[in-house]
Design a protein around this nucleic acid. Structure first.
Length: 211
DNA sequence: ATAGGGATTCTC
DNA sequence: AGAATCCCTATT
């Protein structure tokens, strides 16, 4: 194995510590851009650079699942940071969040898009959509989860363990500029909350949403 | 017990 | 623009 390949493997084990997640959702959402989402499954490993995120707050955020307070579904959002919160939306799509904020305070970041790095053949097999360019195999929150084989079975999983599913720091700062805009699909929350620029993405990234 | 609706994606 | 499709949450 060459030096650069060895470095790439080492980077996958540079785990983000729990303190990274124990901050405001907006800060975590912004700082997750350029980090690497790693998944290991029976089919093999797959990785993608996180290129689009959305921040969600607690009961005061009318766009957040936590707006109803602590319920069975949203319990992970109120739990310790650095865990996964996976939910089913529209009866068919699963979406992956990372839990933020201190234990007891609700918050999460929805991972909306990834740029495939490795395991691209796996992602293509999972999505099975002919004509998709490699760069868009993990475009969209439901497609990102599917490409990395994330399901509700991963709900509550500790992302700081470095097994099955975690986030790694590539070590190098992302070259791309960060852009911000309103969150998607939350018009029910009213203008004040729907208008907040809590969606972040890397400029020019082909996998980012184009609303 | 039941009704209303959704942090999406694909097709027409 | 409209469908697909399950489960959460609130209400009766």
């Amino acid at each position: 194995m060459g030096a650069s390949a060895a470095e790439a493997v080492a980077a996958l084990h540079r785990l983000l510590p729990r303190e990274f997640y124990a901050r405001s959702s907006v800060d975590v959402a912004r700082d997750l851009l350029g980090k690497i989402l790693v998944s290991e499954s029976d089919e093999g490993p797959a990785t993608a650079t996180i290129v689009e995120t959305e921040a969600y707050g607690g009961p005061d955020d009318l766009a957040s699942h936590a707006r109803a307070g602590l319920t069975k579904r949203t319990a992970p959002m109120f739990g310790p940071p650095g865990h996964a919160y996976v939910y089913l939306v529209y009866g068919m799509h699963e979406c992956l969040n990372v839990v933020t904020e201190e234990d007891g305070r609700a918050g999460a970041v929805l991972l909306r898009a990834g740029h495939p790095l490795t395991g691209i053949d796996l992602m293509r097999r999972r999505r099975a959509r002919p004509g998709d360019p490699d760069g868009r195999l993990a475009a969209g929150p439901a497609r990102l989860a599917q490409a990395l084989a994330v399901t509700r079975a991963d709900n509550g999983h500790d992302l700081t363990l470095g097994r099955r599913l975690w986030v790694a720091d590539p070590g190098l700062p992302s070259a791309a500029a960060i852009e911000a805009g309103p969150r998607i699909g939350i018009s029910y929350a009213g203008a004040e909350w729907a208008g907040r620029p809590w969606r972040f993405w890397l400029r020019g990234e082909p996998a980012a949403s184009r609303p």
